[in-house]
Each structure stands twice: as C-alpha cells, then as structure tokens.
Write a protein that binds this DNA or RNA. Structure first.
Length: 263
DNA sequence: ATGGTCGCGAAGCGA
C-alpha cells in the first residue's frame, strides 16, 4: 500500500497538482491538510475520476480542513474535535486493516511565548493528542498517524538548528511536547526509519525565500508515524521535493510511504 | 537586521 500525506494549501486551487501526483506516484491513499474549503465545495469528482472511490473529509471556510481519499474501502470514519475547538484538524478511518489518523496540528503563530494564544493552542493540541492515543489500545492496534505536525523535532529536520532554536516549529518546548506525544504510543517515525538522523531532511520551504531551492532553508514539518508492530511492514519512503517546484506549488512537499499490507 | 510570499475572499487573518 502506498500512502501519501500532503499539506496542499487549498484543494480547489491545486486539484491539478493532485492529478499530477497521482499520475506519477499512484498512491492508494491520499491524506491532505489545509483543504481550505467547506464540504459542499470540495472537488470530490476530480478524485473519483482518478479512481479514489472512498473518501472522508471535514472542512470549513478559508482555513484548515483535512481529507482522506482512498482506492481501498474506508470504514469507521471519525471526526475528532480537539481542545474545545471546531476547526477541522483531525479525522480518522480504517483502511486495509490499519487505523489511519490524518492530523493538522496548529502552526502556533510567530511568538514562542506562553502569552501567545496561538502558541498555547498548539502546545495544548499536542498535549491532548499525547493523552488521547491510549497505550493499551495501541499495543495491539495497527495505527498510522500522518499529517502536518508543524514541528521539526530533530536538529537535522531544520536547515540551521541554532538559528531556529527560538523559531516556532523548532523550539525546545514544542519538541518536548512532540516527544511526549511520540512516546505516548510507542510510535515509530516511518520516514527517519529510512534516513539517518545525521542527514538533513525537509518537507517544507517558505514561500518567502527568493529561491527556495538554492537557499534550501527547509524544515521537516510533515510526518508519518506507525505503531511499533508495523515496523517490519515499512518498505520505502520518499519526500517528493520536486513537487515544491511545480507550478503554483504548495509550500509543503508530499511525503510518501510504502507499507507491506500482506502481514 | 529586516522583510520577504502565499490563499481566501474581498479586508485582514493565518501560515
């Protein structure tokens, strides 16, 4: 099974980029964040035309929104409300025997300060996830968590660790919360599983850089985690950096994981 | 050191 997660930054504007991704990579399951549209305007037909018969999404006007499109049947579709808000950041469904969670963790604003409501919202959101995924369930459950987590935890998940230490997405308090979430369920980072921590690895490059490719000031904000029992099923990863250079791109690249579902 | 760019939707917010 090939799974992709992509913060698309508007599904309506970039539906053509989805088609391009599908034609070249042929994923079985597509998880999208920042769809930025109400459900009644979601371009479902474009996905169905590409063979994605099954879907589950929740969206709102202008902001946020998460979606799962699949060639394989989806069941037990759920929408999860987080930290008392109604902002369309977490859905889940069963697919091919896995419990798949699609997450869009808040970006957290610009100030890494507890007085910032946005920053607190982000930390509270991650805290809630760490409590919500229960250990006893996950010990047996085959779970996958994907999405834009908006945190780059490792030194080589950012272009310059020292310069980024006070920048929201890489601050120690965020990494601490992130790590607690990671350990809450004995997750395995399915991307770093294939790429040593010594190697720089990014999935996002700012729109503001004059030449994002040459500057290469990236961050790894997009993640795929699996529960430990699925480690033998991990086959291959790919971060499709080329997609960041496509016409009118998202600032995020698609992150792809191949899983052996025969086991 | 600063400001730099996007999308939505029609000004300002969020990233």
């Amino acid at each position: 099974m090939r799974l992709v997660t992509w913060n698309l930054n508007s599904v309506r504007l970039r539906i053509g980029l989805i088609a391009k991704l599908v034609d070249s990579k042929k994923p079985d399951v597509i998880c999208i964040q920042e769809t930025k549209t109400r459900d009644e305007f979601f371009p479902v037909a474009a996905f169905e035309a590409k063979g994605y018969k099954y879907h589950h999404f929740t969206g709102m006007k202008s902001y946020n929104g998460v979606a799962i499109f699949s060639k394989l049947p989806l069941s037990d579709k759920q929408i999860h409300k987080r930290v008392g808000k109604n902002d369309c950041r977490h859905i889940s469904a069963r697919v091919a025997g896995f419990e798949l969670h699609n997450l869009y963790i808040p970006a957290g604003g610009y100030e890494a300060d507890m007085k910032s409501e946005k920053f607190r919202h982000k930390l509270d959101f991650v805290d809630e996830l760490a409590k919500w995924f229960p250990k006893e369930r996950s010990a047996r459950a085959k779970m996958i968590a994907v999405g834009d987590f908006n945190i780059a935890p490792l030194e080589n998940d950012v272009w310059d660790h020292k310069k980024m230490i006070d920048v929201v997405s890489h601050t120690p308090v965020e990494v601490e919360k992130f790590t607690r979430f990671y350990n809450s369920v004995d997750w395995v980072d399915a991307i770093r599983h294939f790429v040593p921590e010594e190697k720089k690895l990014y999935s996002w490059w700012s729109y503001r850089a004059e030449d994002w490719d040459a500057a290469d000031r990236g961050r790894r904000l997009d993640h795929i985690w699996v529960t430990r029992g699925l480690k033998p099923a991990l086959k291959k990863q790919q971060i499709l950096r080329a997609a960041r250079g496509w016409e009118r791109p998202s600032d995020h690249a698609p992150v792809i994981l191949d899983l052996d579902v025969s086991g």
